[in-house]
Structure formats: structure tokens, C-alpha cells
């Protein structure tokens, strides 16, 4: 019986990160087999990572792979406001399967009452 590749539906689709801190976008895949997991930034269709290879020359980006549960996490160091937007976790199936994650980047504020 051939099992199909799919995204873990419990993976968060909306992530909020703090300016200057690391942002982590998770992508959990089931039955990945020999397919590759890539991360793409939608704003400019920029390929960020393919498997554990970082394609972008922006060195703040990297993919972290946890073998248990086939989780590929996009790590963005020193998140900036301009990093906010939609990111796509793409499986190299034919046709491709995509999981979209929205990243918000916020400035922490504190008020003295």
C-alpha cells in the first residue's frame, strides 16, 4: 500500500515573531519518502531553502530538520518588519503540494501604568 505525502494539519498557519529575534516557521510532513521540502518567500517568489541546503544568500535564513515527524522548520534570524508576509513550504510532489504560513513581525511595547 503506497501512502500519500501530506502536511500535518496541526501545523500553525499564522506565526508572530518579535523584531530582532528569531522567527521559526514549522512545516510538518507525513510520509515524505524521497520528496524534498523547500521554503519559498511569496513576496518575490524567492527560493529560500531546498531540503537542508540554503539557496538564498541572505544568511539569516536556514532550514532546521528534525527527523522525528519529518519537520522542516524555516529559521529566520533577526526578523525584520520587511520579513512579514506569506511563506510557502513546498513538497516536490508532482504536482507540488504547498503549505502556506503567514509571518507577522511585531515590535514589543510596554506601558507603565
Amino acid at each position: 500500500l503506497k501512502s500519500d505525502t501530506y502536511f500535518d494539519p496541526a501545523t500553525p498557519r499564522n506565526v508572530t515573531a518579535l523584531v530582532g529575534k528569531s522567527a521559526y516557521l514549522s512545516c510538518k510532513v507525513r510520509n515524505l519518502a524521497n520528496k524534498t521540502v523547500s521554503w519559498i518567500r511569496h513576496r518575490d517568489i524567492h527560493i529560500l531553502t531546498v531540503g537542508s541546503y540554503t539557496y538564498t544568500s541572505d544568511q539569516r535564513f536556514s532550514a532546521i530538520h528534525r527527523r522525528e515527524g519529518d519537520e522542516w522548520t524555516l529559521h529566520i534570524k533577526w526578523a525584520q518588519k520587511r520579513d512579514a508576509g506569506v511563506y510557502e513550504c513546498q513538497l516536490s510532489t508532482q504536482p507540488v503540494r504547498s503549505f502556506f504560513v503567514n509571518l507577522n513581525v511585531v515590535v514589543p511595547t510596554a506601558e507603565i501604568l
Binding site: 519559498i40 517568489i45 527560493i47 531546498v50 539557496y55 513546498q90 504536482p95 507540488v96
Partner: peptide, 11 residues
């Protein structure tokens, strides 16, 4: 990259 589906073809 295939522009419409954003499917990565090759690197």
C-alpha cells in the same frame, strides 16, 4: 521555478 504554481523545478 514555474511561475504560476511556484513549483521549484531545479537548482
Amino acid at each position: 521555478v514555474k511561475a504560476d504554481t511556484k513549483a521549484i523545478q531545479a537548482i
